[in-house]
């Protein structure tokens, strides 16, 4: 399988995501923000970082980059898309995911491990995980407080669109949401960084499951 990682100006986890995809056994290729064609890839990652220096709002400018037209088409066809951190912010700004990411409750940047609960395994990025499973992954963000209106949050829960929740809701996200997906489940956004936990030497392999899920999803494996 071939995984594409979009590089926006200001992306800074692009190389990390490419490396993690390779460690997980995929071919990984960079996709340039200025190209609207995203052909020949089986899945797309929008990596973390500060695309366009967070000008205007985090993710706001990247959402209008030419490559996003291709990402939209890819997602509309049911392709697996994962936004990590800034990538999550971009997917929300682009309207591919519901909600918005705002400044953390304490207005501070947070870089530390957090415990997550997997809520759904129906997405191509969580197929290898089990609902209720606990994952410890690092976060590194200043704007990760997930915000949706209460009725929208209810709808997301009812439609099985919550993907991860924080055990300790340190940033004040609505419903302690750490990751969500679109209605179809193929587009996922998450604030924690699975690509930073794919090697034992870097503190564990807790993030590998996110990457390995893709292969199960492609093979049509589903979990109850």
């Amino acid at each position: 399988m071939r995984l594409g990682v979009v590089i926006f100006p200001g992306s800074n986890c692009d190389r990390d995501a490419l490396a993690a995809a390779e460690i997980a056994g995929y071919e990984a290729v960079p996709l340039w923000h200025g190209e609207s064609a995203v052909e020949g890839v089986d899945a797309i990652i929008l990596p973390g970082g500060f695309s366009y220096g967070d000008a205007l709002r985090a993710g706001a400018l990247a959402a209008t980059a030419p490559v996003m037209a291709g990402v939209r088409r890819f997602a509309a066809r049911g392709g697996a898309v994962l936004g990590i951190c800034n990538g999550f912010q971009i997917l929300c700004e682009a309207g591919l995911l519901p909600g918005a990411l705002t400044r953390n409750r304490d207005l501070a940047f947070h870089c530390h491990d957090v415990a997550l609960t997997v809520v759904t395994a129906r997405t191509p990025w969580t197929r290898a995980l089990a609902p209720g499973e606990r994952l410890v992954l690092p976060v590194a963000h200043g704007e990760g407080r997930y915000v949706v209106p209460p009725e929208e949050l209810d709808r997301l829960e009812a439609q099985d669109q919550i993907v991860f929740r924080y055990e300790d809701n340190f940033n004040g996200s609505c419903g302690a949401v750490a990751g969500v997906c679109n209605r179809a489940g193929n587009v996922v956004g998450m604030m924690p960084h699975p690509e930073r936990r794919v090697e034992a030497v870097l503190g564990g392999e807790a993030g590998l499951g996110v990457f390995r899920s893709l292969r199960l999803a492609a093979a049509g494996v589903t979990r109850p």
Binding site: D16, F109, G203
Partner: peptide, 19 residues
């Protein structure tokens, strides 16, 4: 000093073995 270094991304580039 964790309250200070938690304000800094100390893992980007995924090479940090001892944080």
């Amino acid at each position: 000093r964790a309250p200070v270094y938690r304000r800094y991304d100390h893992e980007v580039q995924t090479n940090t073995v001892l944080r």
